[in-house]
Write a protein that binds this DNA or RNA. Structure first.
Length: 288
DNA sequence: CCTTTCACCTGTATGC
DNA sequence: TGCATACAGGTGAAAG
């Protein structure tokens, strides 16, 4: 379940191992993996052949590899997607979807995705949120680590929403990069229940929540995004997400690290929410 | 226009 | 043992 910190680790790995190299061939092994590439698999392959990859970029959970010219390879890992850097002759992974080989004979870039929620495509660039981004993600808001992230704008738009605060945190058109895990962690740090209505949040509380989101994701990143000298440990050695910075997620019945009350799990939007019933009391009704 | 729900996927864990 | 069910949950289309 890659969220911003996990995707940033992948971006750094791509920067280290793929940027600057020339594509020799690209092969699509599962059509669903390129379902957002409208011209289809053949065009995907022919368009990539001979292209040089630039510096890896990211917004929220999307990452892209600019190509010489004015387009880019855009990728989203979905729930189970991985971008692996592996020896070109090595056996195909069980869920290998796209394979990109290089003219230097060095390691392949492979998109492996068990559940095929992720996807890869080649697209033109556009402009959004103060910088160039691939055209299909112009509706994705800046993430809180971007230089041009507008904190006042975020606060105004959040308070204007007629919804609950956790829904808003997960809305990638309002703030990007936050998924279910770090949403729960940020809410815990800010002592907010996810069902609190956005309209009733004070500006200081919103600033606290945003700061909490930044802190927990930065902590996760510092655990997972250290050195990239070793290909296999840092680029491919997933370890999933970064457990040690998690206070509530997946910890039902364990003591709250702050007050000791047992963490509870609630069902929400067809998924799990974890919180401390004492630090984060559920609002009684709208406005609480 | 804004908000909510649902389909898309498959491996793993759990219950009967 | 085998079968059925729940669960993991990000995204965008569809529905409300």
């Amino acid at each position: 379940m890659p969220e911003l910190p996990e995707v940033e680790v992948v971006r750094r790995g791509l920067e280290r191992w793929v940027s600057g190299r020339v594509i020799a061939h690209a092969e699509v092994l599962h059509p669903r993996a390129i379902r957002r590439h409208v011209p289809g698999a053949e065009e995907f392959s022919s368009r990539l052949k001979g292209r040089t990859i630039g510096s890896a970029e990211r917004r929220g959970k999307y990452l892209w590899l600019p190509l010489d010219g004015s387009d880019a390879i855009l990728a989203h890992l979905g729930m189970s997607g991985q971008l692996l850097v592996v020896e070109p002759g090595s056996a195909p992974e069980r869920h290998l979807r796209v394979r990109i080989g290089f003219t230097d004979g060095g390691p392949d870039l492979r998109f492996v995705d068990q559940r095929t929620f992720g996807h890869v495509l080649v697209t033109a660039m556009a402009h959004s949120g103060g910088r160039p981004v691939p055209e299909p993600i112009t509706h994705i808001a800046a993430d809180p680590f971007e230089e041009h992230f507008d904190e006042d704008l975020f606060g105004r738009r959040l308070r204007a929403r007629q919804t609950e605060v956790k829904r808003a945190l997960l809305d990638q058109s309002l703030i990007s990069g936050v998924g279910n895990i770090y949403a729960d962690e940020a809410l815990w740090r800010a002592r907010l229940h996810g069902a609190r209505p956005t309209g009733a949040l004070t500006r200081p509380k919103i600033a606290e929540l945003l700061g909490a989101a930044r802190e927990v994701m930065a902590a996760a990143l510092s655990e997972g995004g250290t050195s990239f000298d070793s290909l296999y440990v840092n680029v491919n050695g997933e370890s999933g997400y970064f457990d040690r910075s998690l206070a509530v997620y997946g910890r039902r019945d364990e003591p709250c690290p702050r007050c000791g009350a047992p963490i509870i799990r609630e069902s929400f939007m067809n998924r799990s929410s974890y919180s401390c019933p004492r630090c984060q009391p559920r609002p009684r009704r709208a406005g609480a």
